[in-house]
Design a protein around this nucleic acid. Structure first.
Lengths: 125, 125
DNA sequence: GCTTTACTTAACCAAATGGTTATATACATT
DNA sequence: AATGTATATAACCATTTGGTTAAGTAAAGC
């Protein structure tokens, strides 16, 4: 899986509790690598790698200030991810609405009998 | 990384284009495994594995109908994921609002001079 | 009962992931 | 110039991931 589109790298970056915690921290403002590493019982290189994943996914950007590399949150990919999720959530909800409408419709015309369908060939959903 | 919380398994499941395409298809209604596999140039076992990942993440559920295992979308985890993302996106936007307010405030009191801070010790963000 | 259809499981493999320790780099302080 | 501080890179390792093919299971149709 090398053809990494934006959504893939975004979700992949979000699929780790450490990285989500880092983003959570950064949502309150910029922080240095050491500051970000503090809450975790994990080596600095490990944090460095997580930051690289977040950076590659463009969820964070980094500056230079003397020997510090302050990180800050970039929300654009979060927006794209949120939009994707919401899109399908909405479709899913729309299905319920349609089912609801259909059930009402069926209920309206009383006593309709459905012929038993042929045993083979799966019903279409 | 074995302690898989809900968000982790949700995002991890979403971090694959094939699985997202499957969810996309399922947002339009139930489908059998063979139906879901059709658009992909991939073996059935590969699809089967993807479905297992989606099922473990509770993004889909599966029924039994003769030899078919119809899959359907379950939106609850999508909701949780969306909420998480939106939460931090919102915080991030709130920061801009606060910065904006701060800049207006600073702009209000003219000609304020800032003393140069001590060279060492990184500024707090 | 045999075959076909739908799907799963097992065994395998290469590559990616998430961690480690040890070493290097860059800037600041003394 | 030497030392300390902040961070990155390299080399390594175990586990997970995403795919494969081959074999197994279960129900339906002939």
């Amino acid at each position: 899986m090398l053809a990494q589109d934006r959504l893939t790298s975004t979700f992949q970056a979000l699929a780790d509790p450490t990285r989500r915690a880092i983003l959570s921290r950064l949502s309150q403002g910029e922080a240095s690598v050491t500051e970000l590493a503090a809450p975790f019982s994990m080596s600095m290189p490990a944090i460095s790698k997580h930051l690289k994943v977040l950076e590659r996914a463009k969820l964070i950007s980094r500056g230079k200030e003397a020997q510090w590399r302050p990180c800050k949150l970039e929300a654009a990919p979060l927006e794209a991810a949120s939009n994707w999720v919401e899109q399908y959530r909405a479709m899913w909800e729309a299905r319920f609405d349609r089912l609801d409408a259909y059930l009402k419709e069926v209920q309206a015309k009383e006593g309709n009998t459905t012929k038993p369908r042929k045993a083979n060939g799966r019903k279409k959903y």
